[in-house]
Design a binder for these strands. Structure first.
Length: 572
RNA sequence: GGCUGGGUAGCUCAGUUGGUUAGAGCACGUGACUCAUAAUCACGGGGUCGGGAGUUCAAAUCUCCCCCCCGCCA
């Protein structure tokens, strides 16, 4: 039994995520977590909300709520939606937790001790009317490059150029709209990533099995131009983790907080500590996942994220870990995804374009979405969501191929042979061939899942569903039952067992339907069917089963047209 | 301007180290079956693999040039 640590990139707190966010991190991470649990491995699967930074403050202000309250509410909303999608986190934490405060301050403290933090004085824009500095999105003005009049302090949304607040023409506060601004000297902490460049480079080079997409991004940041730059890790904000050197005050840093990108990945560790707390366990319970000196040496750590998150996970966060000099677990395999596009354009949270997680659940059960998203996961390139494709794929794969298989087998069995697994007859050549084929395919499927080849795994799983229909069509128990009833019993015994096997194999993709299949077969044996010969005989003769409701209904053209018109246009 | 990825059947995509008539699913056509969610199964039509040049006995696959698309960076 292996020990598998899995983290999904943590979704930002300000609002409900769209399907593109979901398929790029949380959903494939969940697939992998469910698969590894099914294989009997010990799994720790952690996610959280990323709560600090200016967008949270702005969203809270817009909602007219204190930022802490806003984050608490939005965390619950996201947690509820995650449940709706059956995301099987062991813990869904919060980057604003006390655990993360302590850990983030701890890391800053040891980094300082190791001489990897320097203090920098710089000029920032100060709003006299608001009584505060205006970092990042707290300031807007005209872009000096393209003339866009709502460019933000950190970036222009129109031409995408990175900006400094001091670059903006006619700057104004986004809090009060005040233009009564001045430049003031302020002090900030920088993480000296340049000093860690060689260490990071050697570490990246040791990851020969990572996708090119991942290592090339890391190497580019590491080597291009002047190479990896030191990074500011503090901000003049109120909402965040107060700057402390371990548990000691940090002179000159009073009233400042750590930058969101410094504390967010630390939440992977803190979230595991939150898990221990929530379950009444001691520190050793979470440390055996994260500290190689405290039991984590045999842990394999997998991270899942969209490609935009790769630099932070290959460089910034590892810089924190390596720089600490402490034996924390570094990521072993990083699975990154491209983007999902929506009907010819991008999904966009700010423009409300696309399908959002709450909308998706309001129109169809999660299995529909899980299946489509995972079987079309943007692994090698960007992928495209269209309603037509969604309707066609889901109707065909889930309703016609899998759902109908379960339906035809159980209904036929019940009407002709009764509601127990028939006992008579022996398997013949056709059954033997099917079992052999099934064994090969299960092995292929298992390999694809182990390798996190999501689309390929979905294809293998679908093929496994299809051979059930092929077998039935060729075996034709509805004819055989008239001439050789004993053999028909053997055929149906096999088909019923196939349903149970399908439940196990399908569970990582479509957990609800899998449970329905397993319940209908009145079994609780979820043993992965690596031993096909045993698995195909798991349901003994005379074992009772029931005919389930149809597993999947079809999406009609009317529904598709309606959703197409109503969703993804203006969701705010 | 630099970089990653991509441009393969109507659509969504596979194509390992270059090697027999380029594959899958969907859609389409024909047939079979009638247990089942008008489902299933079989067979078939359909592609000069973005364009051009080159290397090779042999290239979707390698090299060079060019043209598009998504994204990242400057």
């Amino acid at each position: 039994m292996a020990r598998i640590l899995i983290t999904s990139a943590i979704p930002y707190i300000n609002g409900i995520k769209h399907l593109g966010n979901l398929v790029g991190s949380q959903l494939p991470a969940d697939l992998f977590a469910r698969f590894n649990r099914a294989m009997g491995h010990e799994v720790m699967f952690i996610c959280a909300t990323d709560e600090h930074g200016t967008p949270a403050e702005l969203a809270a202000a817009k909602a007219g709520k204190p930022v802490a309250d806003y984050c608490a509410e939005m965390h619950d909303v996201q947690a509820e939606i995650a449940k709706g999608f059956r995301l099987s986190f062991d813990h869904f934490g919060r980057s604003s937790s006390q655990r993360n405060h302590k850990l983030t301050q701890h890391f800053a403290g040891v980094l300082a001790e190791n001489g990897l933090i320097r203090e920098v004085s710089e000029k920032m824009i100060y709003s006299i009317d608001d009584g505060r500095f205006l970092p990042d999105r707290y300031i807007e003005g005209t872009c000096p490059n393209c003339g866009f009049d709502s460019a933000r302090g950190d970036q222009c949304d129109n031409c995408t150029k990175q900006l400094d607040p001091t670059d903006l023409i006619n700057p104004r506060s986004t809090i009060s709209g005040s233009t009564n601004l001045e430049e003031r000297e302020t002090k900030h902490l920088y993480l000296m990533q340049r000093a860690l460049k060689d260490k990071l480079g050697a570490w990246i080079d040791s990851k020969a099995d990572w996708p090119l997409l991942t290592t090339s991004i890391a190497k580019k940041w590491l080597n291009d131009g002047d190479g990896l730059q030191d990074r500011g890790i503090t901000r003049d904000l109120h909402w965040g983790i107060p700057v402390m050197k371990g548990d000691q005050p940090w002179p000159g840093m009073e009233g400042k907080v750590f930058y969101v990108w410094f504390d967010a990945p630390i939440e992977y560790i803190a979230g595991t500590a939150e898990w221990a707390d929530a379950n009444g366990l001691g520190d050793e319970a979470w440390q055996r996942w994260w500290r190689t000196d405290k039991g984590a040496a045999d842990v394999t750590y997998y991270q899942f994220m969209g490609k935009d998150n790769v630099p932070f996970h290959t460089l910034s966060f590892p810089a924190t870990i390596l720089g600490s000099g402490e034996p924390w677990k570094l990521v072993d395999y990083l699975k990154s995804f491209n983007y999902l596009n929506y009907d010819g354009g991008q999904f966009s949270t700010s423009r409300g374009r696309g399908v959002f997680m709450d909308q998706a659940l309001s129109i169809l059960p999660s299995d529909y979405w899980r299946w489509w998203l995972l079987s079309h996961a943007p692994e090698t390139s960007d992928a495209e969501f269209t309603w037509e494709n969604f309707q066609a794929s889901v109707n065909k794969d889930l309703a016609d191929v899998l759902g109908n298989f379960v339906s035809r087998v159980t209904k036929f069995a019940k009407s002709k042979l009764g509601e127990t697994v028939p006992a008579a007859g022996e398997f013949g050549p056709m059954e033997t061939a099917l079992i052999a084929d099934l064994g090969v395919r299960i092995a292929d499927y298992t390999r694809a899942m182990e390798a996190m080849e999501v689309r390929k795994a979905a294809g293998e799983l679908r093929a496994i569903w299809v051979i059930g229909n092929e077998y039935l069509q060729a075996a034709a128990p509805w004819s055989v039952v008239k001439t050789d009833p004993d053999h028909a019993q053997a055929q149906i015994r096999l088909a019923l067992n196939l349903i149970r096997i399908y439940a196990i194999l399908s569970a990582p993709f479509i957990p609800d339907a899998a449970q329905a299949m397993m319940s209908a077969m009145a079994s609780e044996d979820w043993t992965w069917p690596s031993d096909v010969h045993a698995a195909i005989r798991a349901l003994p003769a005379s074992h009772a089963f029931t005919v389930p409701e149809n597993l999947f209904r079809k999406i009609t053209d009317e529904e598709r047209t309606e959703w197409q018109a109503q969703i993804g246009r203006a969701h705010v």
